[in-house]
């Protein structure tokens, strides 16, 4: 029996965006933390750390997200770990994010002029102090735009986890469409919801970037 696309269907789709948001948030927090460590390791003075981080980035970027998802979902459940799909989804998205954010932030750190390292070293700062007070504050400005670009990609890429049964935004749209056969209304709603999530992120980034740029010549 075909249902009509009414208010309850609409609300079901919009409400399912909470999983998209939760997933994005979790993978961003976890992946951001891991990515930060990866970026620091990648710019370390210790060659083994650099190689390890480079290996991590290369490996994760070389594997489709879908495979990361299957590996953490089926792989871990076969290993006896019973994981709710949302956890497996978060873990795999976080791993994916760590490699890309790590690479973006490595680039940002390395694009700070090398003389800044030298000037701060000459003032007897330790490596940690150089990062904390001189290098990272400058790297952040460089990192804002590409980081936000990646976050927007991440929001949209979370749709992939519908495959292991998480009913997030895209999956909810699919379900409703199967019941109502109103693809324009259904996927219009889905698309608009994605847009409403992503738009403020880009907007915020532009404001932030403007603020950071204004601060040094204001």
């Amino acid at each position: 029996m075909i249902r009509t696309f009414s208010e309850s269907e609409f609300l079901f789709i919009v409400a399912s965006a909470r999983w998209t948001l939760l997933l994005t948030l979790l993978s961003l927090l976890l992946g951001g933390l891991l990515g930060f460590i990866v970026a620091l390791a990648r710019t370390s003075q210790l060659a083994p750390l650099r190689m390890l981080a480079a290996g991590w980035i290369g490996m994760i970027q070389g594997i489709p997200v879908l495979m990361l998802l299957f590996l953490s979902y089926y792989g871990l459940s076969m290993g006896g770990v019973d994981m709710p799909p949302i956890v497996a989804a978060s873990v795999s998205m976080a791993i994916y994010a760590s490699a890309y954010l790590g690479e973006i932030w490595r680039g940002s750190i390395q694009s700070v002029a090398w003389q800044q390292w030298e000037a701060s070293a000459a003032l007897a700062m330790s490596r940690a102090q150089q990062y904390r007070y001189v290098i990272l504050p400058q790297a952040v400005r460089i990192a804002v735009a590409p980081t936000v670009g990646f976050i927007v990609q991440l929001v949209k890429n979370t749709s992939i986890v519908s495959i292991i049964g998480v009913v997030e935004l895209a999956r909810a749209g699919n379900l409703v469409n199967n019941a109502t056969f109103a693809p324009f209304k259904v996927f219009g709603t889905v698309a608009a919801t994605y847009f409403i999530i992503c738009w403020p992120i880009s907007l915020l980034a532009r404001r932030l970037e403007g603020r950071l740029n204004a601060r040094r010549s204001g």
């Binding site: 002029a113 003389q115 800044q116 030298e118 000037a119 701060s120 001189v134 400058q138 601060r215 040094r216």
Partner: peptide, 10 residues
Amino acid sequence: VFQSYNLFPH
């Protein structure tokens, strides 16, 4: 002090 001033721009 170097030829390039290398002040911290931030």
